[in-house]
Amino acid sequence: MNLLIVDSMTWTITILGWFIVFVALVFLIAVFNTIPKILNWDTKRILRKKRGVEKGTIKNEDLIISGETNAAIAMALSMYFNELHDEESNVITIKEVKRRYSPWSSKVYGFNNVNFPR
């Protein structure tokens, strides 16, 4: 059967084909909208347990952190860790200087070893 300029098969493939592409991607959208909710479920549970937050008060949007926020946190952590020093004893000491024997200032060598006439 010819509908307009092409046969019915062409119409079928055109419409159905595009529709299936849509369905496939809508299906993917549905799945990827659900996955964060499932992953956040455990985080919510931990928050409720540790911080005593009441059920229903945490929204999924609250758990979403934007890339900018992440970058700011990472920057702050990096700066904090860079400024840290090694742990020290807090005892300030002055090292005692030990002079070793040095012949150049020896008194012995300063004498003139001459025999006085008697």
Binding site: I5, V6, D7, T10, W11, I13, T14, I15, G17, W18, V21, F22, A24, L25, V26, L28, I29, F32, N33
Partner: peptide
Amino acid sequence: PKLMILGAAAQVGIFATFFGASA
């Protein structure tokens, strides 16, 4: 994920050309 639908919408080019080539 909702932006994925735009990838599907642009595939109209494939099916429109299929139609045109058949014609």
